[in-house]
Design a protein around this nucleic acid. Sequence first.
DNA 1: CGTCATTGTCGAACCGATTCGACGAGCATA
DNA 2: TATGCTCGTCGAATCGGTTCGACAATGACG
Lengths: 357, 357
Amino acid sequence: MNIGEIARRAGVSRSTVSYALSGKRTVSEATRRRIQDVIDELDYRPNAAARALAEGRTRTIGLVIPPATARLTHMQLDFVASVVEAAARSDLDVLLSPSGGDHERSFERLLSGRRVDGVILMEIRVKDARVDRLLREDLPFVGIGHTAGDHRMSWIDVDYTTLIARCVHHLADLGHRAVALINRSPELVAAGYGPGLRAAEGFAAAVAERGIAGFEYACGDDTAAGRAVVRRIHAEHPEVTAAVTLNEAALPGIQQALEDAGVRVPGGFSITGVAAQRWAEDFRPPLTAADVPAQQMGAQAVELLVERIAAPDAPPRHILLTPPVSLRASTAPAPSLAESTQARVSGSGGSTAPNGR
Amino acid sequence: MNIGEIARRAGVSRSTVSYALSGKRTVSEATRRRIQDVIDELDYRPNAAARALAEGRTRTIGLVIPPATARLTHMQLDFVASVVEAAARSDLDVLLSPSGGDHERSFERLLSGRRVDGVILMEIRVKDARVDRLLREDLPFVGIGHTAGDHRMSWIDVDYTTLIARCVHHLADLGHRAVALINRSPELVAAGYGPGLRAAEGFAAAVAERGIAGFEYACGDDTAAGRAVVRRIHAEHPEVTAAVTLNEAALPGIQQALEDAGVRVPGGFSITGVAAQRWAEDFRPPLTAADVPAQQMGAQAVELLVERIAAPDAPPRHILLTPPVSLRASTAPAPSLAESTQARVSGSGGSTAPNGR
DNA sequence: CGTCATTGTCGAACCGATTCGACGAGCATA
DNA sequence: TATGCTCGTCGAATCGGTTCGACAATGACG
């Protein structure tokens, strides 16, 4: 069942079998055939560990995911799925490693034994110890997300600052004068979660530029938190007529709370933000939002990593995506001041545009 | 950076270093210290490939997941997360492989190079080619889910037949005389998806036993399909006053469609079924359902696999879980016949019991 | 004091591939 | 005919560990 056995049965040396398989030296058509026949008959596949040892590479990449305790968002799930799929297309295997919390051992195991040729890092913090660790280890890696001003790594990310600002401008254009930002969980943002911080920046800047009132709310990643945050907004700032969010997981809760309060979307309250397309389309009415092309991002992350493995000394590349805001049906002109405290029954307000991709 | 270098610096032979690390032979305390000091100083970790080659095992398990094209349910996500976490606790790495669709290459790669010590199979069909493939390969594996009557494999599964039947009995006890089963997608069930088939069996049996009317509906795994199926049930069988489901992903759509129709849950319509606890608690009102302990199942699957790797010839073990139906608030006595065509506004009908685990 | 078991260490073989240098056969060229 | 190339193949070294058998030193025992 090993290469020696194949060689013996085909009546050649082990090296010839190896060359026949890899094509790295010429092998006569006759012997190649003979070897291939034996291989097919015995269903032989080279041992991965032996090959990795000899070649010095494992044909495996590591994917560092948030720990299981944190409920994965659909977007993160799409990242994982597309990374695995893209890797398979490049004949790479994917080793999963939860990180954060008390799972640093798993992360260390990934790096330590030269088990992988490269690493894809998800859920990167603005200041992230794992980046330094990987740089020290001299292991190629790319981020889905990026640290603050680190030019020593390749990454692909969504430009939350710009996108959230665009959403605010969209609402301001519709006449909203007081809007809320529904951010991710307080712990996450406090820990330096990039998208959360950058969204807050973009929100603050756009609100200031348009001279409207803006209120930022942290919100946990679940339905209950979504319900709670809507209630808080209504209670603390009843003048708010629209919200911008990047918290996908809270969307169902937001929807429920608005319904409970008898507020119509978009007539009485407008919602927009940044979300994976699936979530946007599940929302009722369909969410006007910048669609994060998560599937494509996973594939591109693998591409970047493959490049980086092939040429570790090439300058890192950075891809910052700014997908267009797809106008669906969850935003409408602000209710006039007279009506603003009372839900208005109205039809869809936003115009519908073809979905940008 | 290899074991020879450590040996040289510590002034001992390579084998001594190996024994000092593994503890498989006694090493004097003095040399052990000296070796450890060198290791700490150089931050040495044994090369995984070399170790795998020598030991004949990789300390890695494979996890075969549904392809990315199929949207993963929360339950499946919980499986993945808990498997990865449990594996990490046993110092095992997890290699991910999407299977189904055109991803058989990835599955083959997993098996072929002896890349993993064992495999966990998700989303098993009643008749599953991958099971035969794994048996042929003589690779230890366990299923989350099980084939029909295959005693050659270990598995852990939920007893959908019994659970769905219990849900029907619960509804019948409440006086419902016509109920629907909202199953998984037609393609999935047609392909021999175990839970779908077993749920249909349990449903049919219980409905017959109680002498009530039962209608089975297939339903895609998304919000839109959930909305559609509710509309179909109302249109084709207006006498139906309750539904049983194992289709988690359709729950939000079911909820939306009932709201749109002005039907109150549970006053006008009762819903129950089998779901991951998170989904059940996100439903409004909280779903009376058998909570699938997905997290625990992933961990137990890893346990089973570790056992199987340690003792490949031991008889396979089967774990069939029948979690209790947690009474929450989505079921109530059937509306009287006079009222049945009209939504009734009523409070919570189901009694609330502590959550069984 | 000779014998024997125990302890600690070493050298060599081995796991299963890749890869490099060498070399014989066949053929064209001088 | 001698020389030099190319082509196809082989043997041996190598990757970085683990493990087995051997063996010297030490202490216990008769």
